[in-house]
Each structure stands twice: as structure tokens, then as C-alpha cells.
């Protein structure tokens, strides 16, 4: 405990490093996954190809990716940019499937009604499909946020500073309190992101609030049962690395 009180500054600095790494990755993966997920949803041929590629991408273990990526894109191994790109790739890999599932969850009657009253494909996507698939997207994004925060710690072993540095430093110097502080800070940060996303979801999708009240208690720790089917729930558990 004394270590923690004496090093609050250090923990705070690493937390900020961690935020700088994970927030861009979460935001970028959502933005990039939207068009790819739409493509996977729209055409059957592209669906198979995209979902397979994305599944394989997600299967790549993090540490080897952190090492190979800089050689491919030409950044330095220890650069935070390298880590942000890798985390974004994992986020996209998760989110594409969620976007495809979310768009597919929109009732066909509603989509047909939208085109019947004259929406173009473009406006129908932004004004009908995207808002209606919002709850599924939110559930997926929460998973992406929590797993990104957790995964960013691995960067510490290749020398990118984050809350993970508390693990490597604590391990090398034999300070148990430092590792525990790192774990707690990581989990707390993940929960803060999760809570912020839930709050943002309520602001952006006020019509889900009455339903949200029942699902949130069910999902307090960031699960995705709102993603409807047990199959997709199980799939999104693949994040847990």
C-alpha cells in the first residue's frame, strides 16, 4: 500500500498514456468498421470473404503482431503509433462482425417501408438502419473498448509505456503492489470507458432508455446479451484476450 501512495503520480501518468493509446484505437475501429461491416452485410459474396478475413485477423496473437507490424508499415517498434494501429486492427476485426449483425437485425419490414416512402440507400443507411442497429453496435463497441484497454497493456513488453509498464516494472523489481495497482487501474479504466459508452448510448438513443434499464442490470460488467442471439454473445466473448 505504501508503494501506491508514494507513486500516485506515476500511476496517473501511465493512466494518461493508456488513454492516449486506447481512445484513438476505439474511435478509429468504429469508424473503419462501419463501411466494411456494411459491405459484409450488403452482398452475400463479400460477407463470406470479409468475415473470414476478419476472423483470421482476430486470431493473430497480439505480441507477434506488435513485432511484425512496424516492419510492414515502417514505424519503429517502440512507437506508440505502432500500438495504436495494432489495437485498431483488433477493434476493426471485432467490430465488422458486429456491424454486419447489427444491420441484419433491422426488421425487413422497416427497411422496406423506408424505401417505399422514398429513402435512398444512402439516407436509409444513416437515418434508418444505423439508428435502429444502434443497440447492437453499442454492445459491440463496449466489448471493443474493454478489450482494447486490456490489450494495450501487452505493449509494455515491447517498450510502449502504458499501465502495462507497471506490470513489467513491478515484476522486474519484485513490487507486488505495483502489479496489483496496474491491474486495478486497468480494470477501473475499462469500466469508466464502458460507463461512458452506456451514457453516450442513452444520449444518442433516447428511445432505448426504457429497455436499457432492464438490460443494463443484466450486463453490468460489459457483456453483450443485447446482441440478441446466444451465438453472437458467445462470439463476442472471443475478445477476452
Amino acid at each position: 500500500m505504501t508503494w501506491i501512495w508514494a507513486n500516485l503520480d506515476l500511476i496517473w501518468d501511465r493512466t494518461l498514456d493508456h488513454v492516449v493509446l486506447s481512445v484513438p484505437a476505439i474511435v478509429l475501429s468504429f469508424i473503419i468498421a462501419l463501411p466494411i461491416g456494411w459491405l459484409a452485410h450488403r452482398y452475400r459474396a463479400s460477407r463470406g470473404v470479409i468475415l473470414t478475413v476478419v476472423g483470421l485477423l482476430y486470431a493473430i496473437p497480439s505480441l507477434p503482431l506488435f513485432i511484425i507490424l512496424p516492419i510492414i508499415v515502417g514505424t519503429s517498434t517502440r512507437s506508440p503509433l505502432n500500438l495504436v494501429i495494432a489495437l485498431t486492427l483488433y477493434g476493426v476485426a471485432l467490430m465488422v462482425r458486429v456491424v454486419a449483425d447489427g444491420l441484419a437485425s433491422v426488421d425487413l419490414d422497416v427497411r422496406q417501408s423506408a424505401s417505399a416512402v422514398g429513402f435512398s440507400t444512402w439516407t436509409e443507411f444513416w437515418q434508418v438502419e444505423l439508428p435502429l442497429s444502434g443497440p447492437v453496435l453499442l454492445a459491440g463497441l463496449r466489448v471493443v473498448a474493454v478489450s482494447t484497454v486490456s490489450l494495450a497493456t501487452v505493449g509494455a513488453v515491447i517498450g510502449v509505456q502504458s499501465l502495462g509498464s507497471l506490470f513489467t516494472d513491478g515484476f522486474q523489481r519484485g513490487i507486488q503492489a505495483e502489479i496489483i495497482a496496474g491491474i486495478v487501474a486497468t480494470v477501473v479504466l475499462a469500466l469508466v470507458f464502458d460507463a461512458l459508452l452506456v451514457y453516450a448510448g442513452r444520449l444518442l438513443m433516447p428511445w432505448t432508455r426504457s429497455r436499457a434499464a432492464t438490460t443494463v442490470t443484466d450486463n453490468a460488467a460489459g457483456s453483450v446479451s443485447t446482441a440478441a442471439t446466444p451465438a453472437s454473445e458467445n462470439r463476442s466473448r472471443e475478445i477476452a484476450r
Binding site: 474493454v146 496496474g182 486497468t186 460488467a221 457483456s223
Partner: peptide, 21 residues
């Protein structure tokens, strides 16, 4: 469900170093 969600947030590297220590 709740514990599976909580476990996802736990960093693997942290758990590994903690147990190793």
C-alpha cells in the same frame, strides 16, 4: 455473465506477472 465480462477487463500480462511474482 457478469464474471465473464469482468474477466475480459483483466489484463493477461498483469495476471501473469502477479502470479509469477
Amino acid at each position: 455473465v457478469a464474471s465473464a465480462g469482468a474477466f475480459r477487463a483483466i489484463p493477461t500480462l498483469g495476471l501473469l506477472t502477479l502470479v509469477a511474482l
